[in-house]
């Protein structure tokens, strides 16, 4: 069977997703998804793991440096053989680079020296640091709204916008792949978006904040956190 028909049965066994932000949870559990994904060949399973791992925020250490993150992106790109998945990955990284630049500028950070982030706009962004959208409104029309949401200090709105843009990007790529490995990989990435939105809760945010605070204050031994286990 040719590459474009490689995973017909697997793709047809995966339930479609409801509309993003309407669905309360992904269309199937991670356990069931992983069970279905055992049909992947070892090479494809490895490529999917690399892709998912590189795009997952939770897979990054909280104190990861820019250089380490960029190095990891390059390594991941090297391990993903499918051109369309590489393109998709770079698009996501460009999007993250632009959002990171917005956040830095919003915090009053100075213009980064040299290049910034990953992708085509790594030199363009520092060169246009003063422009509200880094003169990227054509390739990234959502940047204007993201800039506005950051100014309005609306993190939930920004998260919603970024997930929505990522979802649209993935759906655009999915239209070119029906039953091949790329279709499976895109399905899993869309599943992750649904999962991320479904898991967003105040309790989880508080837990993550506490973890961040613990890490930031790790060197200060004298401070006891109320409610923290010894």
């Amino acid at each position: 069977m040719s590459g474009q028909d490689a995973y017909i049965a697997l793709m047809c066994s995966l339930p479609g997703s409801e509309r993003l932000f309407v669905a309360k949870q992904p269309p199937l559990s991670r356990i069931r998804l992983d069970r279905r994904l055992t049909a992947l060949t070892p090479e494809d399973a490895k490529a999917l793991h690399v892709l998912e791992h590189a795009l997952s925020w939770s897979a990054y250490d909280m104190d990861v440096t820019d250089a380490q993150a960029i190095q990891r992106c390059r390594q991941s790109l090297h391990d993903i053989p499918q051109p369309s998945l590489r393109k998709l990955f770079i698009e996501r990284m460009e999007m993250r680079s632009a959002v990171a630049a917005l956040r830095l500028r919003n915090r009053g950070e100075p213009v980064p020296s040299g290049s910034f982030g990953v992708g085509r706009w790594s030199r363009h962004i520092p060169a246009n640091w003063g422009d509200p959208t880094f003169r990227l409104e054509r390739p990234m029309p959502w940047l204007k709204e993201a800039h506005q949401l950051l100014d309005d200090e609306d993190p939930l709105g920004l998260e919603r916008l970024l997930l929505s843009v990522s979802h649209t990007q993935l759906k655009r790529h999915a239209a070119r792949h029906l039953f091949d490995f790329e279709a499976i990989a895109i399905y899993v990435l869309i599943w992750n978006i649904f999962d991320r939105w479904g898991q967003s809760s105040a309790a989880e945010a508080a837990k993550r904040f506490e973890k961040l605070a613990q890490q930031a204050m790790a060197d200060v031994a004298d401070i006891d956190f109320e409610g923290a286990s010894a």
Partner: peptide, 14 residues
């Protein structure tokens, strides 16, 4: 038939 058959097998599991 094998292409469509595989699709139907996948769909039947769901």
């Amino acid at each position: 038939c094998s292409i469509a058959g595989m699709a139907s097998i996948g769909a039947m599991t769901e």
